[in-house]
Design a protein around this nucleic acid. Structure first.
Lengths: 345, 345
DNA sequence: ATGAAAGCGCTAACAA
DNA sequence: TTGTTAGCGCTTTCAT
């Protein structure tokens, strides 16, 4: 396997990329001056600067990022590590993160937590990163340990157990969950309200279930264990749960609060096959307010989670820390709110 | 803003990362030997090698990727540039690409084509990449020019206009489209078959429409212009189209071939609100065979596009070229096939 | 306002 | 088998 030269970019002499020295020679200045034109334009006389810029253009010069990184110890690349990059949830989060990164002049390197099936070794190229935003949704995820051990600036996404020594941005499930539960209680007796959650270990799933229970109890109802169930964050699980509820006749007249939109969608599809329609025959509210809600008919009521902001805020905090390593760690809380549509009320 | 030292990794002397020299001193060898145990273990005596590895472990040494990149001109990072990273289509493609990259010991840097709304400047950090996989879906996309001008190894995704001088992997819409159209023709007269495509400029949309028409003509039918329409690759467009077809009474008894699954989903939702069910009242087939198909009830018939393979193959070709720059450019064709489910037949 | 020179941490001839 | 040394292309004192 041939090594050097693997030249990218146009070359003056065949086989070698344009270097700062080439530009310097071409403009009859020292490489220092070229460097200054790029990094501290104020220190160079306008005339010289223009001449150098002309040479840069003419030669198609692009600074070598490795050499630069070697000196500055910066890459202007930040990483974002998520449990998964699939689905509306993460896509939306990524959009926010990417937009914010661009806005601040950084590049975003996306990676997912999932282990490679095979024997491959490459994980995140930590060495290239200035900082890392990490999302941890379950205690078993090792990303968190790995990341902090790295000795690199880190920002946590949706991590409640943060001890305040590190930047983080978390979803406050409370308000939205409470709002939704109260909304259901307005049309359905507390004893007929159920929560169909996602993975039991998931932090958000737990908090949502907890607030659901609290709200029911706040309404003077003693919650039965059977009123909350856990499974997965999938439509399949929602469908499976619904099949059971349909079979024992408990779905009709009940109010279903799903752990996320996919679960709600699964419930709705299964119920629909059994001839049951939301709002008419039962109440249904999802969670996350993903695109799925407005895609499906009737449109799904859901608790809005500001996913875009979640991603954007994480990057924002990270960039802030990069620019000012001594800044006080910040924990940013993102509110959730109920969005009423056609499956409830 | 403080510059150096922005040290990542543990430090022997406060404020400086562990360097190869530190390891060398600690193990009482030269830096060359350390370099060799990392890159060519065969050239070092087992005893020394073990001692060096011990030092590396003890000091927590991680090679500086910038210094290494400066010498090797490689980063083992490849980029993938897509029109969008949102939705089932791209997610699935990315999964394939990521898995393959990991398998080959490369990192994947994901970026989307979409311009930043704001004034931010950062695009792809080309300088860090060994190569780039680019997906071009419309002639207006400038990514292609940009990429090839870069003088960096490139692999094209789903680009038909390739001139054979560059690696590419393309979806062969033909077989699946033909199969689906024939399937529709088995239950519906050709005059009642319609194609509801996505963006008119999109290469795939065009090819799918073309093969649809050809197949109808092959069946001895003269296709009317009104039998193909274009809009967007969204459920909204599908719903909009369906509303029209419902209003003028043309949906019942017809066969709808949608340009992608989202469009099909939109048609189905709109029809369902009007009391029309697929298979019973009309035929419906989507395209791409995304997760949406099995999420919705009844489950959507669709043309399967091997998205995972698409991503994986692109990375595979790119890696091959990286290892062997002289390899003959390859164009890999990916077959599409009909998947019959509950909305057709 | 400009330049000379010293590295940044690493790899790879070339010696020994 | 191991070490010496010369860069890779850039930024940054320190002179001028």
């Amino acid at each position: 396997m041939a090594r050097r030269p693997r030249n990218h970019g146009s070359d003056p002499v065949r086989g070698r990329p344009v270097s700062i020295q080439d530009v310097a020679s071409h403009a009859s200045v020292s490489i220092t001056t070229v460097s200054r034109v790029i990094n501290s334009p104020g220190l160079v006389s306008p005339a010289t600067a223009e001449r150098v810029r002309e040479s840069i253009r003419e030669l198609g010069y692009r600074p070598n990022v490795f050499a630069r990184g070697l000196m500055t110890r910066q890459s202007r690349v930040i990483g974002i590590l998520l449990p998964d990059i699939h689905g509306e949830f993460y896509s939306e989060l990524l959009r926010g993160a990417d937009a914010e990164a661009k806005r601040s002049g950084y590049h975003l390197l996306i990676s997912s937590d999932v282990q490679p099936d095979g024997e491959g070794t490459a994980t995140i190229p930590y060495g290239f990163l200035d900082g890392l935003a990490v999302m941890v949704t379950e205690p078993s995820h090792k990303s968190w340990d790995e990341a902090t051990q790295l000795g690199m600036p880190v920002c946590l996404l949706d991590e409640k157990t943060s001890d305040g020594t590190v930047d983080s941005v978390v979803i406050d499930n409370g308000p939205g969950t409470r709002e939704a539960t109260e909304h259901l209680l307005a049309h359905t007796p507390a004893s007929r309200c159920v929560f169909v959650g996602g993975t039991r270990e998931n932090f958000d799933a737990q908090e949502r279930a907890r607030v659901f229970n609290e709200t029911l109890e706040g309404a003077g109802h003693e919650v039965r264990a059977s009123q909350t169930s856990f499974g997965e964050f999938t439509a399949d699980w929602g469908g499976e749960w619904a099949s059971g509820a349909i079979a024992d006749g408990s779905l009709r007249g009940s109010a279903v609060f799903a752990g996320n939109d996919e679960i709600a969608f699964g419930v709705m599809m299964a119920a629909s096959e059994a001839g049951l329609s939301p709002r008419r025959d039962y109440q249904l509210i999802g969670f996350d307010d993903t695109r799925l809600c407005t895609l499906v008919r009737p449109m799904l009521s859901s608790v809005r989670v500001p996913l875009r902001e979640l991603g954007a805020a994480a990057v924002e905090l990270l960039v802030r820390r990069l620019e000012d390593p001594e800044a006080r760690p910040e924990q940013r809380l993102l509110r959730t709110t109920l969005v009423e549509r056609e499956t409830s009320g």
